[in-house]
Design a protein around this nucleic acid. Sequence first.
DNA 1: TCAAGACATCGACAACCTTCTATGTCTTAG
DNA 2: CTAAGACATAGAAGGTTGTCGATGTCTTGA
Lengths: 118, 118
Amino acid sequence: MSKSVSVLTPGETVACCSPLVSSPLPQETAEQIAPLLKALADPVRLRLLSLVAAHADGEACVCDLNDAFDLSQPTISHHLKVLHESGLLERSKRGVWVFYRVQRAALADLAALIGGGL
Amino acid sequence: MSKSVSVLTPGETVACCSPLVSSPLPQETAEQIAPLLKALADPVRLRLLSLVAAHADGEACVCDLNDAFDLSQPTISHHLKVLHESGLLERSKRGVWVFYRVQRAALADLAALIGGGL
DNA sequence: TCAAGACATCGACAACCTTCTATGTCTTAG
DNA sequence: CTAAGACATAGAAGGTTGTCGATGTCTTGA
């Protein structure tokens, strides 16, 4: 599918193209990062994450989160599961309640990757 | 769907919940940001963006990008369209070729939002 | 022991996404 | 003018996602 370019001298490279200056994301890396972004790429999950982050001690219980949306409890539970399995939310059960806490490091890594020209 | 909480004094708030300490993302904001993240949340598009960013003068032509993937030309064209319409890639046509350039500001904004606790 | 409540899982359905092939639109070279 | 090449659009197939109601699993209080 890709045209061989190895026999061309620099001056002969196709007219439209400029050379690479830094190395692009390897496919493997891209496939690791995409699921993280996918987990983040939903308005409900963005608000969930932000709601958890906004809580006093950095964690919020599900009962609290459920009431913040006009969505069924299973739907919220599903979104929390997605965020948890992607590594963006940490989970801990205390008594009858389940608490979620933001994994700041994961968010920071993502931000660094996006902010730093990829 | 949400229980009213306005009549409770601080001491009466339900046992499981801690108060908010900073304000969570408004729904409207979340719905503006999610599409941006969605555009980013695909391995092919991540690599496309990174490929463009990695080019010498900050832009790359489609012919160049096509050859970097084992995907059909229309598929690449589609992904570029998604990135362009979301505001992450700028487009310019010169002669027969079309060049794409990364919109650094959009990426920086996203990174700031994600990195700064949302 | 039993009932109630908090949360998760299941199965279904509609909407959407990725990819393809086929085809269209421009632009340039001859 | 015509042919070739670069890129976009259209339409379809198959997989994935968001949401729901129904139901299951734990934990606690009575």
